[in-house]
Design a protein around this nucleic acid. Structure first.
Lengths: 209, 209
DNA sequence: TAGATTGTTAATCGATTAACAATC
DNA sequence: TAGATTGTTAATCGATTAACAATC
């Protein structure tokens, strides 16, 4: 096992490995070689073995990998078993859609609660998640110490809201606003879901003659 | 101007360039050098110049780039001015959220119409977009020839729906299902928005000790 | 003009792929 | 055992950065 800094390229492939392995696992597949996984995923077997070697030795010569085992190892590397807890900031259509459709538990996140400013929403609950007033934010976070905030607020409040949450100790942001957030704290992470960027990439590709 | 295949790395940076230039443009900034744009975006000036050189010469020695001009050039490269038209397949919470909040026009897409199976939705409209029955799909696409389909349908219908749309001539998919779609047609493009992957990447980062 | 900044070529760095000894 | 397949080292490929002549 090499012990070096793991590159972004590798990190970004991990969730995809996990998805494929989860799928194989659910289909009851017991073992898989880097070769056959590679052809499924359309990457080289070499790359898979190289990527995995950043984290340990999970296979066996002549056999390949045990699907259940590798799935859980990668899940572990990704922190799925850490019991992370998150809060949702902003329950507009998008926040609502995530609450209704997104399987947070499946990737090891528990949705503690949600916050909004709308009196119509405060006090109600969606999918067993209570929506609270934004005024309770400080007290709630101090009391319950969630790890991650999902930002589904309007653009213009994104950065101030992020700063407020960072001061309260939030360490990770799943950011759905189209704003690039920043902080000087090195242990705070932003993961941006830039819808616009992906649509523009598609636009680029279909626009070539 | 070098004329080679443009790498994925470059293509994926284009939308971000566009966002920053659009922002500068809206702030009334007239000119910018690769150096100052680079420090804003936290990339090297060299990379910016190298990237742009794939598409032409947009700057001027001693001056830098005209913001309005570079913005529109990159918009052009991305196909923002192509008048692409799209249809939304599936108006659940997510489709609804996109219809209400996402500024398609800003990136040069016109939302023609939307489709769903729910009798409650069919015939209504959201943000001036009519929701039609899935039964009208064939006829509509044949008649109006939209370019792109936004897939916000349940997982298990994703691939069959994509195949059906590809047969009807849809060339681009903005895919919000967690399924990796495939086709043997080389001129069909999928742009996947894998929510799960980004949340897992965040999980990885905050899980490191 | 002199200073600034481009576009491009060359150098460096890192990521991917190939090869293979080790071994199940 | 023989065949299969790993983990890792070496080779290759491509992307990023640095350097600089050209020139506004």
């Amino acid at each position: 096992m090499k012990k070096q800094k793991v590159s972004d390229a590798v990190i970004h492939r991990l969730p995809r490995y996990y998805r494929y392995l989860d799928d194989l696992y659910n289909k009851g597949v017991v073992r898989i070689s880097s070769n056959s996984l590679g052809s499924k995923m359309d990457i080289t077997a070499s790359q898979i073995r190289q990527d995995l070697s950043c984290f340990g030795e999970f296979g066996q010569q002549g056999y390949g990998y045990n699907v259940a085992e590798l799935r859980s190892e990668i899940g572990h590397i990704l922190g799925i078993d850490k019991g992370h807890r998150l809060i949702i900031i902003g329950v507009g259509h998008l926040g609502h859609a995530l609450l209704q459709n997104f399987d947070f538990e499946k990737v090891g996140f528990h949705v503690d609660t949600a916050f909004d400013v709308s009196p119509d929403l405060i006090g109600t609950s969606i999918h067993a998640v209570t929506i609270r007033s934004m005024d309770e934010l400080e007290q709630y976070i101090v009391d319950y110490r969630p790890d991650v905030a999902v930002l589904t607020v309007p653009q213009h409040v994104a950065q101030p809201m992020a700063s407020r949450l960072i001061d309260l100790g939030i360490k990770g942001f799943w950011n759905f606003t189209n704003v690039e957030l920043s902080t000087d704290k090195p242990d705070v992470f932003f993961e941006d879901v830039h819808f616009v960027d992906t649509l523009l990439t598609l636009s680029y590709r279909i626009s070539r003659p």
